[in-house]
Design a protein around this nucleic acid. Structure first.
Lengths: 232, 232
DNA sequence: ATGGTCTTGTTACGAAATTAACAGCGTTTG
DNA sequence: CAAACGCTGTTAATTTCGTAACAAGACCAT
């Protein structure tokens, strides 16, 4: 329907879907790389090729963001990057709390400090007394007993659950009690949270089994009389 | 359209989408838990509640699998689990090769051995000489120089890329050269692979930024005049 | 035995998302 | 200077996806 574009100062119009936000996040990463490489302008089809989507998809997504490129030169990388950052920006705060500083937690910790994102890993929590009360990769690690207090005190809006499955629900409860409004869940089970808390699940095994299934299918397809192919 | 169901011995009908396969994988995990708990039968709405989808969705997915439950008792847990396992089964082999035995690699390694899946982590590879030529969590770790030879020799169909972004493409090339037909990519970039190789991306930062965005939106929605709510 | 009350399996509908198509405009070139 | 080309912004169409609704069947109670 009617949707005026979004150059700041607009709310509650044309809410982007989860998939759209995922793509925007990918665009932002790609644009950051282009900026580092010193590229000034980029075409929709070039960005589309990098993100493995269609050019029409890119343009439509940009419409949601509200940034306009110039017709013949394409999108200005720095400007578009700034527009995306503003669009994805969270006024409430960019602080993230990590719970669980095992292998997975450390992976996430490193990713967060290396990745070009406005999000900042503020605090970490763990039950292991050998890990707590010290810096881990530049991030202070508290015992999990202090989780609710610290999260509430610092008004941290986002929590990451990177603990074994058996402890995941308990941790989620603590995060909710501390007042977070979003959780990234890396445990292979569905968290029970209040309605106003958004949860996204990152399930390694589901992704792997999906690969297993479609790897099989693709190989089978090759042996078949041949089907239509994607565009090269 | 017309789609006869799928009680074995049928190919190329109604190819399930990626999302469908993801749900089937989740169902399988949940059914495994139910079996362990000794539950004999389960209703579609119960399974739906556990998987956070609608009951109609569950029934439609089961139609794709080709398993029929009994009208009033629901689905027999063991039978349905067996049907799912057969449906998701990969005749080509269940072996998986892990490349990168850092924090993320170790996480995946542990997940694979603990998770109820037919997939089996056969070999691992790394460039770190301190990690190679020994067992890691019961899995032999080779130096990456032997990747192509080992993968080809053992006909391993699936590879996991759990290395830093800069090395990801190179590792993917090696896996493809070794003859895999599917790759799970944990690096935040798009891999270039031959057309017949299926790739699934697991991007932690994209998931986290999605949480950030929608956490903000949900909180804002609470402050608003109130919108329609999901079913309790 | 029979009616009722639950289920499932299936079809049909509606919504959402992606793709295709086209108008507008700036650039460039003859 | 004019005209043709290339890319964007936007709308329309198509396809995919999820949901709702309904027919059919088994168990239970009476």
């Amino acid at each position: 329907m009617m949707v005026s574009s979004n150059p700041a100062g607009k709310r509650c119009v044309n809410p982007p879907s989860e998939r759209t936000v995922e793509r925007l996040s990918r665009y932002r990463y790609l644009l950051h790389e282009l900026k580092v490489e010193g590229v000034g302008y980029v075409f929709s089809h070039a960005l589309a090729e990098m993100a493995a989507v269609s050019a029409a998809q890119v343009r439509q997504d940009m419409m949601a963001v509200g940034y306009s490129g110039t017709p013949v030169q394409g999108y200005e990388v720095e400007k578009l990057l700034a527009a995306l950052e503003e669009f994805l920006e969270v006024p409430e705060g960019k602080d993230v709390a990590l719970v669980g500083v095992g292998n997975l937690g450390l992976t996430i910790l490193k990713s967060l400090v290396e990745y070009p994102t406005p999000l900042r890993l503020s605090v970490a929590f763990d039950v292991d007394w050998r890990l707590v009360n010290r810096q881990v990769q530049g991030c202070w690690c508290y015992p999990v007993e202090q989780l609710v207090a610290v999260v509430r005190e610092r008004q941290i809006p986002i929590g990451i659950v990177a603990v074994p499955p058996k402890a995941a629900q308990e941790v989620a409860d603590l995060l909710c009690e501390g007042g977070v409004s979003g959780i990234l869940n890396c445990a292979p089970l569905r968290l029970r949270v209040p309605e106003h808390v958004y949860v996204s699940n990152l399930n390694i095994m589901v992704a792997l089994e999906k690969v297993s299934y479609f790897a099989h299918r693709n190989r089978a397809r090759m042996e078949c009389p041949a089907r239509e192919r994607m565009k090269a």
